[in-house]
């Protein structure tokens, strides 16, 4: 239960300076990526997707998903509702980032590999990660009672974190036993320094965007729980 003493977020949602800064940063990075970063010799303009695709993938898996798993473990241990809200917010913002990865990937793949989709280990793992986060969100939406919702989603969050290595291992094994000829992915060529600068600033900009969205989403969760508590008090 939310204690009544917990301070309510009072700032109006329209004024979110962090979100504003993040959006401007992402926009600036894209101006730099499109206009002031050299075009890759072999891949042409398609390579520019890297700046949004690879950064989103990294943040989705290693920041959002990891945060969801850690917050889930800590919730079962400490039973603090804030941790449940962190897990919920990380999952939902992570879902947005994973969706971006799955949408931008085929755009790049069609140009470079000649196929929208291949059952490559990384692609398949990302797809199942997406399914897992969708299941997590559906579970949250299907449980009415707050304490139960938090416990259930924490259990799923932890099991999902245990599952990801298994999925990665099995799809990797699947691919290596059945090599696919269309996998023409260049083995990470060392980037020119201008591209590196663009890449790392893109990473920072998207990390900022993740943090801003996470904070905004967390605030919504807090408000929602508070409204639910008030309604219970009056009922």
């Amino acid at each position: 239960m939310t204690s009544a003493s917990e301070p309510l977020p009072t700032a109006r949602p329209r004024r979110d300076p962090l979100l504003g800064v993040a959006i401007v940063a992402v926009a600036l990075v894209y101006v730099r990526a499109l206009a002031f970063t050299p075009i890759e010799a072999r891949q042409g303009a398609a390579q520019k997707i890297l700046y949004i695709h690879a950064t989103s993938a990294f943040i989705a898996l290693y920041v959002a998903f990891a945060l969801m798993a850690i917050a889930s473990i800590l919730y079962l241990w400490l039973k603090d509702e804030k941790l449940d809200r962190v897990a919920e917010s990380a999952a939902e913002v992570g879902l947005a980032f994973t969706t971006v990865v799955l949408l931008t990937g085929p755009l790049w793949g069609k140009t470079i590999w000649g196929a929208w989709w291949t059952w490559d280990a990384r692609l398949t793992s990302t797809l199942f990660l997406w399914f897992l986060i969708v299941a997590y969100s559906l579970l949250r939406g299907a449980v009415e009672e707050r304490g139960r919702r938090a416990r259930y989603s924490a259990v799923l969050g932890i099991l999902a974190a245990l599952l990801v290595p298994f999925i990665h291992l099995s799809v990797y094994l699947f691919r290596t036993l059945h090599p696919m000829p269309i996998l023409l992915k260049p083995s990470a060529p060392s980037m020119p320094s201008e591209m590196q600068v663009t890449f790392f600033s893109a990473f920072l900009a998207f990390l900022l965007l993740f943090a801003a969205l996470l904070r905004a989403r967390y605030r919504i969760a807090t408000l929602r729980d508070h409204v639910a508590s008030r309604e219970q008090e009056h009922a």
Binding site: A135, L139, V143, R148, L156, F166, S170
Partner: peptide, 27 residues
């Protein structure tokens, strides 16, 4: 145990379980 206490039990169980069955089916 989790799905029976939710609003869409019959739908939720496959949705939660199937991603976990992927390594089993493949293996």
């Amino acid at each position: 145990a989790m799905a029976v206490n939710t609003r869409m039990a019959e739908l939720l169980l496959p949705m939660l379980s199937l991603p976990f069955f992927v390594p089993i089916v493949m293996g």
